[in-house]
Simulated assay, not measured.
Amino acid sequence: MTHDEVLAEFRDAGALLEGHFILSSGRRSPIFLQKMFIFQDPVRTERLCKALAAKIEAQFGTVDYVVSPAVGGIVPGYETARHLKAKAVFVERENGEFRLRRGFAIPKGARTVMVEDIVTTGLSSRECLASVADQPGTMLGAACLVDRSAGRVDLGVPLVSLVQMDIPDYAPDALPPELAAIPAIKPGSRGLGA
């Protein structure tokens, strides 16, 4: 998929929102990508995750396991794993920290990729990666549908994305006046299950 085709999927789903948003990192942005509007449509989700799986295979080769952070990463992680013919597992917050639960494990030698929905600062991705660092599988890298950092984020592993975007985000105490004039809303899921 091209950059424009991916963005068209978000626009057509009503998932490209404008306003004043509190991101899961706590930073603020005039643009929010409401990926759940994508994920409510299985056909649209399949198109995007199939394209992401192709990019993952091109970058990393065969993948045995996909690990994703709950909540937002579960759907793209599962759907991408399906196209990779890989197992899909996810980490959940327990006492505020990501952990593999439900008996999930990444076995020795398993070629693994972390799949996320949208990366901005990379905090959730780094937390997910850290939570499985003690697993005996081999972490090849990470992948996401949209990299909001335009390639600037450092996860400590290679990152593959369908789209890189340079969407501005600001510290809460450094908002431009036009953004400060709009009431902020928090559409993300970071506080869930904490």
Rank of each mutant, 00 (worst) to 15 (best):
I22T: 14
H3M: 05
D117L: 11
G193R: 15
P69G: 10
E57Q: 10
I56V: 02
L123W: 05
A15T: 10
M165R: 14
P107D: 09
P69K: 00
G191K: 10
S25C: 11
K35Q: 00
V132E: 01
G141P: 02
D117W: 14
G122I: 06
V63W: 00
F21P: 04
F90Y: 14
L175D: 03
K55E: 13
R44L: 13
R27Y: 02
V153Q: 11
L192V: 14
A88C: 03
E92T: 07
I106R: 03
C128M: 14
M165S: 13
M1H: 07
V66W: 00
V71G: 03
I185A: 06
T80F: 01
Q59N: 06
G26T: 09
L140E: 06
Q34A: 11
T121W: 08
E127W: 11
R11H: 12
S124L: 15
V132M: 00
R47N: 06
I185P: 00
C128H: 03
C144M: 08
M1P: 07
A171K: 07
G103N: 09
A15V: 11
P187V: 13
V157G: 10
M36G: 15
Y170H: 12
V67I: 07
F104A: 02
D64A: 06
R82N: 01
R28M: 10
L17W: 14
L23V: 12
E97I: 04
A81I: 05
F32R: 03
P30M: 12
V113Y: 01
R126V: 11
L100S: 00
K50F: 00
A110P: 11
P172T: 08
G151S: 15
R111C: 02
A184K: 04
V71H: 02
F60S: 05
R102W: 03
R99D: 02
L145P: 02
D64F: 05
A110I: 06
R99W: 03
L17R: 14
I56F: 00
G103K: 07
V115S: 10
S161L: 14
T138C: 08
R44T: 12
L140N: 01
V89P: 01
K35G: 11
A143V: 10
Q59K: 06
I167T: 04
D4I: 06
M1V: 09
I22N: 15
N95V: 01
G188A: 09
P30Q: 12
K85N: 09
R102V: 04
E178M: 05
A54F: 04
G151W: 03
L175E: 06
V66I: 05
A8E: 12
P183S: 09
I38R: 14
L192E: 12
A13I: 01
R152G: 08
E94S: 12
G151L: 12
F32L: 15
R28T: 09
C128G: 09
Q34G: 11
A150Q: 07
F10I: 03
K108P: 03
E92C: 03
Y170V: 13
I167P: 07
D12R: 14
L52V: 00
L155T: 14
F39P: 00
Q34Y: 04
